[in-house]
Design a protein around this nucleic acid. Structure first.
Lengths: 255, 255
DNA sequence: TTGGTTACCTGATCTGGATCAAGTCGCCGC
DNA sequence: GCGGCGACTTGATCCAGATCAGGTAACCAA
């Protein structure tokens, strides 16, 4: 089993004094998508042990390495423990399409279930460690632990809703604001700062994800900065006027 | 229980001589997303009866009536028996966003699971009858019948993949071609003609769904017709050069 | 040091599809 | 018949964002 060693910049680490080694496991699991289940919040002890047996901690992957590749048989889903992962598809013309970014605590690979092959690549954006859940075992477990089934179904349902949001026809400003607000929410959910975001991904990844040109992302970020909505320092973005950003993003995020 | 009475144009009816009354039930179920389960292809007899008890056939809804509304508590999913349903969201500005169209045999409402409220409206596009599955009962069943759990998870996974496809940045031509090819595939899957499609929805619904202007849909359809890809007669579209359409759509549909 | 590479920014120009503005056509009620 | 209405089409114009074309700055290797 691989121990959890944070290689993140300090502002990406959760604000706790001792997050080295396995003493961190519990703290990590409490922010993971499967957290409730792994921690056993009122679940069947017996089945819970199985879940813990089923989880496999992977050794760290380096930036650019692939967690799984498009077309590979789907046999596991992954929870990000540390680092950031992006998913992407390469289309017929060889053009890349970024599908999503995954923060610590989030689950990657659920979309592979349908065709029992992964429909996309998952790539580490920096040094990444993962929890691997063999799907066959997981789905057996889900029939025994209804809470796990519920969690799985809910997570997928959430992905459907999110995907639909991105598909709307919104302006570059709306998209970028929504991107920042959404990241902020997700960072906050996992215990990180909601206003100081480190964008592990390149500008072109962001652009690609938002279906914009990289130049447009640059320009809009600059304008947001000029309008004192954010402060940009390379890949570190500070959200200054979160309210106004949320207002810009309100149509996209429907909140 | 409401009997299945087809009010569809003849080319939307499956090519069987006697599709009136409940003699049709089996034939219908064989094309439904839950078909395998409802028909009991090798499943536990006992549990199967429960599934049949759980299904509720709704009385016909007329064009414009809502199956469920955005914000209502999520407590059921629906399989379309006859007619066509669209889902849509109305954003802050009051603009409509069409999320999807559902043919007979397809399931509507799975995206409500995440927040336990429906995140969109579902509207009948013509006269529609449905099978209603109370979700609470269904998820209990899913823990007993792994095949049902599997089906649910797969259907959601498919929706995620599809949503991601629509979100890509494609040209109007690619989008419309993909729309037609996808409809053709889905009609074929359910036993209808893959080349003669009746578009129950208005041009503006199509445009909205594809994130285009209605004028653009008109123009592209016209051009496709001029190029002998399709023949358009009001809302009836005949696919003449399916191959070429598939080629146009290949990036979107990744096939 | 230089030269190459990668990421990013910024200005100038171009264009696909949106928007605006008339149309036509079929349908329903009177 | 006629008028009104909604769905659709078609043409003219416009514009947000793509594309093209240089930039700069940081970093690494030789």
């Amino acid at each position: 089993m691989v121990h959890f060693v944070s290689l993140q910049p300090s502002f990406l680490r959760r604000p706790s004094p001792d997050d080295q080694g396995d003493g961190d496991a519990l703290r990590f699991c409490s922010t993971c998508a499967f957290g409730r289940a792994c921690l056993g919040d009122g679940y069947d002890k017996r089945a819970l042990e199985d879940l813990h047996c089923l989880v496999e901690h992977t050794s760290p992957m380096h930036a650019g390495e692939e967690v799984f590749r498009c077309g590979q048989p789907f046999n596991a889903i992954y929870a990000v423990r540390a680092g950031m992962v992006k998913t992407r598809r390469i289309d017929e013309q060889g053009r890349e399409q970024v599908l999503g970014f995954f923060l610590p605590g989030e689950l990657v690979g659920l979309n592979g279930l349908y065709s029992s092959r992964y429909p996309c690549d998952a790539v580490a954006l920096d040094t990444v460690t993962l929890c691997r859940f063999a799907f066959s075992a997981l789905s057996v477990m889900a029939t025994r632990l209804p809470a796990i089934q519920q969690t799985l179904l809910q997570l997928m349902s959430k992905d459907i809703v999110n995907a639909a949001l991105l598909a709307g026809d919104y302006s570059a400003d709306e998209r970028l604001a929504a991107f920042l607000v959404n990241l902020s929410d997700r960072f906050a959910e996992r215990g990180y700062s909601p206003t100081r975001l480190y964008l592990m991904m390149s500008r072109s990844d962001i652009a690609n994800y938002l279906r914009l040109a990289p130049e447009t992302v640059s320009r809009v970020l600059r304008r947001f900065q000029d309008e004192a909505l954010i402060a940009v320092e390379k890949r570190e973005v500070t959200l200054i006027a979160l309210e106004r950003l949320q207002h810009l993003a309100r149509c996209v995020l429907q909140s």
